[in-house]
Design a protein around this nucleic acid. Structure first.
Lengths: 159, 159
DNA sequence: GAACTATAGACAGCCAGGCTGTCGTTCGTC
DNA sequence: GACGAACGACAGCCTGGCTGTCTATAGTTC
């Protein structure tokens, strides 16, 4: 029960953090301690066709340089591999490695479990309605990543 | 309509960001361009009795040093003033200045307006139910600030 | 085929907001 | 009076954003 609009914002943030914290912790427990939420989002985008730094930056609405930084981390940790495109020597085409896909699958499963817990608590139809209403309120506003570090840090820890 | 648990998390984050971005932008429009969400939260806590760096750090669940950093910014910008406690020379008692209170009031009004818009879109009873359900789901989990920078950055911009 | 423009990615460096570790000062208690 | 606890300050680190500048390559136009 929010007392004000600011509390509503905190509720939304709290809900997000609850999910993401739990997911990050569980993912770490299952052997992926070096994955943060941002990494999950980035890998999803890469797997989904954003296979160059420039494209990833557009997809996530972040600076090209920030995307390159994230990619460097993912490559270093073995979640993503890159090779120069034979048809365009400027591009470095990215692929998600098997290890990366494992993280994506595990993360998805964990989030699915968490969502199931929520559905149990308030009822599946109610949760669906809540999601529908939130989607309507959020509208076409895309989630961007030029936000404070603390959110993404938790993201990384939870996914 | 979320397709998965991860999408639910993104919806929550999106809702938060939508509110906070709008609030930060509006607050900047009304003359407070240097206030970020963290600052608002910190000022609320200070006004609410967390009037030393150590106490603020406990209230926000952040490191003492991080709290001190935030306080330094708030002091520098004139939103908070501090003086050594005459009864305990170790402590530096903080007070929110009139300028600080103005920001708090303005921020509150803006969030109230935004919440009103949401209530119009999905109906006031529905919004209240949504808040109630979210509160139940989030439970006793306090919002902590050791999260990725992008969330707090947006917070700062929006409140 | 040469010249021009657009795009990819790399390098350097900045900023915010977290963090740890260390330290001197002050308080309170024994 | 001595000792431990708590406060605040200083230095320095990390992450994940950012800008600016640079080179190489590609595509387009003359």
């Amino acid at each position: 029960m929010a007392r004000s609009g600011a509390d509503l914002a905190l509720l939304l943030l709290g809900g997000f953090r609850t999910l993401v914290d739990a997911a990050t912790a569980e993912l770490a427990r299952r052997g992926h301690e070096d994955v943060r939420p941002v990494h999950d989002f980035a890998m999803r985008a890469i797997a989904d066709g954003a296979d160059t730094a420039a494209e990833l930056s557009r997809r996530l609405s972040i600076a090209k340089q920030s995307a390159a930084k994230t990619i460097a981390v993912l490559e270093e940790r073995g979640y993503v591999a890159g090779a120069t495109d034979p048809r365009d020597a400027r591009r470095k085409r990215l692929v998600v490695t098997e290890l990366g896909f494992e993280v994506l699958r595990t993360g998805e499963a964990i989030f699915e479990e968490l969502r199931g817990q929520w559905a149990q608590q308030i009822g599946a139809p109610e949760l669906e309605l809540l999601e529908k209403q939130l989607a309507a309120l959020v509208g076409a506003v895309p989630v961007r990543f030029d936000t404070p570090g603390w959110i993404t840090r938790d993201l990384g820890e939870s996914i």
